[in-house]
Design a protein around this nucleic acid. Structure first.
Length: 221
DNA sequence: TAGGCCATCTGGTCCT
DNA sequence: AGGACCAGATGGCCTA
């Protein structure tokens, strides 16, 4: 399984473990050649209909074709098992098959929704969106998103500290302490509860309103 | 050809 | 009972 690189101060926050890095996605093929729901069973799934609402509401009429005529795994086995189970449940094989098709369609829709959500996630992750670059895999998307969130939280924390520091009336020309250097290695994992001296008064005094960047101000009721 | 990634089917489990 | 969620299995496509 992929291992995330630790999130250090100036480290590339979107780094992925080997095999999930950008180079792994830059091998030319454009998306759509694969992963367009043309898998083993999807006999007549419409590749263009990736829209969630369209997918979810107007379920394709190809459910009846679900794998049974396309040689997909489980066809004959299912027929056999279906008959057995149908007998056990007191249902006709036809009803059982219909139920199975319905379940399959539901599961397919669920997975499509999941993929739509992943597409949405990809769209907000900063990486090379280019026709020449293959889209992120699912696992890479999740790992990248995690790192991105951590990076954002860290940047927010740095900003809070910077604001608190400036609010203390320090001269801007003074060298920035190492703990406030956004590019330093002293970054602390987000959501630290470090007290900011004088923050409650100074934030409001300086801006006239509680600072949205100040953890303590935003924590105030 | 092996390995990675993916879509789909399927049965089981849990929840409403 | 029906739906949602999950994990395993299977087979297809693509790249190195």
């Amino acid at each position: 399984m992929a291992e995330l690189k630790s999130l250090g101060g100036g480290e590339a926050y979107l780094a992925l473990a080997p095999g999930y890095g950008p180079s792994a996605f830059a091998y030319g093929s454009t998306e759509g050649q694969r992963g367009a729901y043309t898998g083993s069973g999807g006999a007549d799934f419409h590749p263009g209909a990736l829209g969630k609402s369209a997918e979810s509401s107007g379920e394709q009429s190809g459910d009846e074709e679900d794998g049974f005529e396309t040689g997909v795994k489980g066809g004959a086995a299912f027929e056999r098992e279906g008959k057995l189970k149908a007998a056990a449940l007191g249902k006709k094989p036809k009803e059982q098959r219909s139920l199975r098709l319905s379940i399959n369609a539901r599961e397919r829709r669920r997975m499509h929704d999941l993929n739509d959500a992943l597409d949405g996630l990809r769209s907000v992750i900063p990486y090379a969106h280019s026709p020449s670059v293959r889209k992120l895999s699912k696992i890479a998307t999740l790992l990248l998103a995690k790192n991105y969130i951590l990076m954002q939280a860290q940047a927010l924390e740095e900003m809070r500290r910077l604001v608190a520091y400036l609010n203390q009336g320090q001269a801007l020309s003074a060298p920035l302490p190492a703990t406030l250097n956004p590019f330093g290695q002293s970054a602390v994992y987000p959501f630290t509860s470090t007290a900011l001296p004088g923050c409650p008064e100074k934030c409001t005094a300086f801006t006239g309103a509680a600072s949205a960047l100040c953890k303590h101000c935003s924590d105030k009721p």
